[in-house]
Simulated scan of single mutants.
Amino acid sequence: MATKVVRDEKSGAEVVYGAEMCYKKSLELLEEMGLPNGLLPLKNLEESGYVRETGFVWLKQKKPVEYYNKKIKRIVVYGTEVTAYVEKHKMKKMTGVKSKELFMWIHLTEMSIGDASSQKIYFKSSFGVGKSFPLKAFELDDDKE
């Protein structure tokens, strides 16, 4: 009989607590991965963690947050726990993020930036369908945020 070893996804993580520190760390991570700073507009986080070795990241908050991105005219809901595996210009295996398209909520599972010249970010749903938007639509305006 073979023994199966299960590794905890959060093993070896750098974990921070408190809204201010978690928000700061999420911005630093987005910058390090070359992703726009407005992808995770979550200012009331309780806990966040990042496992550099595997790229696993999680963000926890008390209640879901509904965010309206005026630049793309879309509502995005971030659940009580958002998780993903991050790498340069990409988040994959995402959980806890959904967007409203027409009358349906679509769970987002991946986001990526193509080559730097495209200036587009591509979002993929759990159905495998995707949509792209201008990168600058996900940049925070310092004077407004």
Score class of each variant (00 low, 15 high):
Tyr68Pro: 08
Lys24Asn: 11
Val16Gly: 06
Val77Gln: 08
Lys25Asn: 12
Glu9Cys: 13
Ser125Tyr: 00
Ser118Lys: 15
Lys93Cys: 05
Trp58Pro: 02
His89Ile: 00
Met94Pro: 03
Met21Trp: 07
Asn37Ser: 04
Lys24Pro: 01
Met91Lys: 04
Lys60Gly: 00
Gln61Leu: 13
Lys70Val: 08
Glu139Ala: 02
Ser126Arg: 08
Asp8Tyr: 09
Gly55Thr: 14
Leu35Cys: 14
Gly130Ala: 03
Leu135Thr: 15
Leu108His: 04
Tyr68Leu: 11
Phe56Thr: 00
Lys4Met: 14
Glu110Cys: 13
Ser125Glu: 04
Ile121Val: 12
Ala2Tyr: 04
Val77Leu: 07
Ile106Glu: 01
Cys22His: 09
Tyr67Leu: 02
Ala116Glu: 15
Phe133Gln: 01
Lys136Cys: 11
Arg74Tyr: 08
Lys73His: 13
Glu32Met: 15
Asn69Trp: 07
Val5Asp: 11
Glu53Ile: 07
Asn44Val: 14
Ala137His: 11
Gly114Asn: 13
Ser126Asp: 12
Phe123Gln: 09
Tyr67Ala: 02
Met111Glu: 06
Ile106Arg: 04
Glu9Thr: 14
Lys92Glu: 14
Lys24Gln: 15
Arg74Asn: 09
Ser48Ile: 07
Leu102Phe: 10
Tyr67Glu: 03
Ala137Glu: 04
Ser126Ala: 11
Ile72Glu: 03
Asp142Ile: 10
Phe123Ser: 09
Lys10Ala: 14
Phe133Asp: 00
Leu40Glu: 00
Ser99Arg: 10
Val97Gly: 03
Ile72Phe: 08
Lys90Tyr: 01
Val97Asn: 02
Ile106Cys: 00
Met1Trp: 05
Lys92Met: 12
Leu59Pro: 04
Gly34Arg: 05
Val15Tyr: 04
Ala116Asn: 13
Val129Phe: 00
Pro41Leu: 00
Tyr78Asp: 08
Met21His: 12
Ala116Phe: 12
Lys4Ser: 10
Lys62Cys: 10
Leu59Asn: 09
Leu29Val: 12
Ser112Val: 06
Met94Cys: 04
Lys144Met: 12
Glu110Leu: 13
Lys124Ser: 08
Val129Tyr: 00
Phe103Cys: 06
Leu35Ile: 14
Val76Pro: 01
Tyr85Ala: 04
Leu108Gly: 02
Leu40Tyr: 05
Lys10Pro: 06
Phe56Trp: 06
Glu14Ser: 14
Val51Gly: 08
Phe127Glu: 12
Arg52Ser: 15
Ala2Lys: 10
Ile75Cys: 06
Lys71Phe: 03
Gly12Tyr: 10
Lys131His: 03
Lys70His: 09
Cys22Ile: 03
Gly130Val: 08
Glu53Thr: 13
Leu40Ala: 03
Leu35His: 15
Lys60Thr: 05
Asn44Lys: 10
Gly34Gln: 07
Asp141Ile: 08
Met91Asp: 04
Lys24Arg: 15
Pro64His: 07
Asn37Asp: 11
Lys62Asn: 13
Glu14Phe: 12
Gly96Asn: 06
Leu102Val: 14
Ile121Met: 07
Ser112Leu: 13
His89Thr: 03
Gly55Gln: 11
Met91Val: 11
